[in-house]
Amino acid sequence: MTATRPAIEVVGLTKSYGDHTVLDGVDLTVPEGTVYALLGPNGAGKTTIVNILSTLLAPDAGEIRVAGFDVRRDPGGVRAAIGVTGQFSAIDELLTGRENLRLMADLTHLGRAAAATAVTVLLERFDLVGAADRRAQTYSGGMKRRLDLAMTLITRPRLIFLDEPTTGLDPRSRRDLWTIVREQVADGVTVLLTTQYLEEADQLADRIGVLDGGRLVAEGTAAQLKRRVPGGHVSVQFTHAAALAAAAAAHPEATSDVDALTLQMPADGSVAGLRRVLDGLDDEGVAGLTVGSADLDDVFLALTGRAAEAPAAEEIPA
């Protein structure tokens, strides 16, 4: 065993409530210093995994080691290493933002001066200086979310769990949060996040696991996952509506967007396929052309949609 054992090692994790199986044999390995994204529809079991890994919930079975500690035998060791920003707000609404951060600093046993400095730095970093002395009750959803994350980071965890960290954030705050996650990773912190936003997984994660019905139905880098779904596309932009209409008539399989004057046609990524698309086009009416591979949205739909219809997750090539 080398010094750098994985930050998270999960083998055969199962969990059920009564006869409702929520996690059905999940295997997961997250190397230290990397970002892993769990992607899955509502009810897939993302929060359940986060709760079990963060010692909030007891698993039914499985070998689960977090930061090198067994979650059942040594939960204290796990807790000392992790920081959690759960799906639901974990702030003290009766306290001010500053008091919330101070509470976390005190519970981490920072000295008086170190705590004061850390609180000031984080209030600034998370754009909460103006609201620092107001009760968290009065914060907007985005401000609460930022405070929540600041409270997690003030304890300087080596491993961070973020359960849908950007749900409810505006685009700017989301980008700010991405930057903060990247800074943490640059410092060597490991991050396991769950998200409904495919772009987010694409932007942040080294590896992505697609969770559906309590099973990891696919796993890999964003690029690997995209390659699994053959459906790339060619998107053609026209100069006028008549040209669009003509092309749309010739390609009944395509979807047209009249307002944007574009036509999107499925393509398998081969040169022959691309030539077939181009052959039918009139040079005059075309303003531009882009060739795109499948995005993560397609992957998500293809993998989870199919798995939801038929219990045939195995059909997806591993």
């Binding site: 010692t55 000392a80 759960g86 707000s89 974990a90 519970l107």
Partner: peptide, 13 residues
């Protein structure tokens, strides 16, 4: 019922 209790439970306190 408040979320911060869940946070305390994940902390080494």
């Amino acid at each position: 019922t408040t979320g911060i209790i869940a946070r305390f439970r994940t902390m080494d306190i």
